[in-house]
Design a protein around this nucleic acid. Structure first.
Lengths: 135, 135
DNA sequence: GTTGACGTTGACGTAAACGTCAAGTTATCG
DNA sequence: CGATAACTTGACGTTTACGTCAACGTCAAC
């Protein structure tokens, strides 16, 4: 039983991106699918990489950073200085992500408060004056 | 006792951005500082706005989105349809942020695992073969 | 055998978010 | 008064992450 494979449009549809984007990721060295003639053939590993690329993007990584992480991860198994470098990058990224989560939490609670105020204003109109605080 | 004010370089230094960036935010309609002649004078409200801009950017908002949120928030106090629109935008953003937090959590745990593996590999070298799983 | 449907490689275009001069203005210090 | 520093407004350049053709290959179907 051969491994499961995908073509470029299947992946594009599954992840709701364009084929152009997928080819671009390949240009940037993030994917290296096999070829059947000139057609690209993606296996499960390629599909996982694509998922990681998209998740990386969602959390604000650039394609270059994602490629560096891939490369370091690939090399990290047998090269000690690479491992150290890998750990450093991960730690920096971890701090960034923690900050980002803090920001998100703050904004989420603010959103909650604002929505509450809005709905209150919609409920009881003409409530006189609104308190002009900061902003 | 007059209100506390700042000039552009003070704000740039405080938030570790360039003056060019601050002027750019003004070009995009995100800031409207007073002028003393041609020099820009920022008050506490401007400073708060700048903080909000930077936080918005950190969580992945575009400057356009930030401007829209500012505008809607300003108008939302006395216009009902604006309020509804404001609430819709906030709800969409809330969903995005929740997804983003999920992604971040996943990546953080993965980072933790990877770092653990790396440190283990650095501790006991030449551990034979590494298991080639997915990726 | 030709007609689509799908895929491919360039090449060029684009939007966002600034960076980088250039050239002028204003404030201040000696 | 002149020099210097700080600020100003354009104008153009740059990077990232693709979009958008154009022109060509290929393979099954009619």
């Amino acid at each position: 039983m051969g491994e499961q494979v995908f073509n470029i449009t299947e992946l594009a549809q599954e992840f709701d991106i364009t084929t152009r984007a997928i080819r671009f990721y390949e240009d940037q060295g993030l994917l290296e699918p096999e070829r059947a003639g000139q057609r690209r053939i993606y296996n499960r590993r390629d599909r996982v990489r694509l998922m990681l690329i998209l998740r990386g993007k969602r959390i604000g990584l650039s394609l270059l950073e994602i490629r560096e992480l891939f490369a370091l991860y690939d090399a990290a198994h047998d090269d000690a200085p690479q491992l150290q470098e890998f750990i450093r990058i991960l730690e920096r990224k971890e701090l960034q992500l923690l900050t980002q989560m803090e920001d998100i939490k703050v904004v989420l609670t603010e959103i909650g408060q604002l929505r509450g105020q809005c709905e209150k204003a919609l409920g009881k109109r003409a409530n006189g004056h609104n308190q002009e605080k900061e902003l």
